[in-house]
Amino acid sequence: MSNHEDTTVSPMLTTSEVAHMLNVHINTVRRWSNQMVLKSYRIGARGDRRFRKEDVEQFLEREGKTKSLKET
């Protein structure tokens, strides 16, 4: 018997999927990833980027608050 916690891994999003979600160009998502503004994970031998949906949602919350502060 093992004492492993129930850890569910959520599906990872591609750079293209995140760009579509955020309505920005794919290169913008890559730049934000390089600048560590948007958290990403590198997978595979090629180092493809993958994003957790939770991280993208947190990014949206942060950016939404920042934009609303700048508008006032």
Results as ranks from 00 to 15, higher is better:
2 S>Q: 15
3 N>I: 06
3 N>H: 04
3 N>T: 04
4 H>T: 09
4 H>I: 09
5 E>V: 02
5 E>G: 09
6 D>T: 06
6 D>W: 08
7 T>S: 12
7 T>C: 03
9 V>F: 15
9 V>P: 06
10 S>I: 04
10 S>M: 06
10 S>T: 05
11 P>N: 02
11 P>V: 05
11 P>D: 10
14 T>K: 09
15 T>G: 12
15 T>K: 08
15 T>Y: 01
16 S>L: 10
17 E>C: 07
17 E>V: 11
17 E>F: 13
19 A>M: 11
20 H>S: 10
20 H>L: 14
22 L>P: 00
23 N>E: 07
26 I>T: 06
26 I>E: 13
27 N>L: 13
27 N>A: 10
28 T>E: 06
28 T>G: 02
29 V>L: 08
29 V>S: 01
31 R>P: 04
31 R>W: 00
33 S>C: 13
33 S>V: 03
34 N>I: 14
35 Q>A: 05
36 M>L: 08
36 M>Y: 01
36 M>V: 05
37 V>S: 06
38 L>F: 12
42 R>M: 03
43 I>V: 02
43 I>W: 06
44 G>P: 04
44 G>D: 13
44 G>S: 03
45 A>I: 11
45 A>L: 03
46 R>S: 15
48 D>T: 08
48 D>K: 07
49 R>E: 13
50 R>A: 08
51 F>P: 01
51 F>D: 15
52 R>A: 11
52 R>M: 02
52 R>H: 02
52 R>F: 01
52 R>E: 01
53 K>L: 14
53 K>S: 05
54 E>A: 06
54 E>F: 14
55 D>H: 02
55 D>N: 04
56 V>Q: 05
57 E>G: 13
57 E>C: 12
58 Q>S: 11
60 L>K: 14
61 E>F: 02
61 E>D: 10
62 R>T: 08
62 R>F: 10
62 R>V: 15
62 R>E: 14
63 E>F: 08
63 E>H: 02
63 E>R: 15
63 E>N: 01
64 G>H: 15
64 G>P: 00
64 G>V: 03
66 T>K: 07
66 T>M: 12
67 K>A: 09
68 S>W: 13
69 L>S: 07
69 L>C: 05
71 E>H: 04
72 T>L: 06
72 T>I: 04
